[in-house]
């Protein structure tokens, strides 16, 4: 489960570029603040390594373990 805080993200694209499994893709539409938010498209590929969350300069990404 990946949560992206719309108010914190500034659209720097670090997560899209540095994810080793290419989970993210930039969205095609601007959000309310004028930012192309990253969208976790290939979420089934995510290995919960938390690299995106620790690299995110705006602390906008939260990666949670799935409780199944």
């Amino acid at each position: 489960m990946i949560k992206i805080d719309q108010n914190l993200c500034k659209g720097c694209d670090i997560c899209t570029e540095f994810c080793r499994k290419n989970v993210y893709e930039p969205s095609k539409t601007l959000n309310r603040k004028g930012v192309y938010l990253p969208v976790p498209v290939n979420i089934e590929e995510c290995k919960k390594c938390n690299l995106c969350a620790i690299l995110c300069p705006d602390l906008a990404i939260t990666v949670e373990e799935d409780h199944e």
Binding site: K10, C12, I14, I54, L55, C56, P57, L59
Partner: peptide
């Protein structure tokens, strides 16, 4: 927050690594 740092500034990453 949100911080006043520019988009993609490394300072936020340093905050994360410090907490870790």
């Amino acid at each position: 927050i949100p911080t006043i740092f520019c988009a993609g500034c490394g300072n936020g990453t340093v905050i994360n690594t410090f907490f870790n």
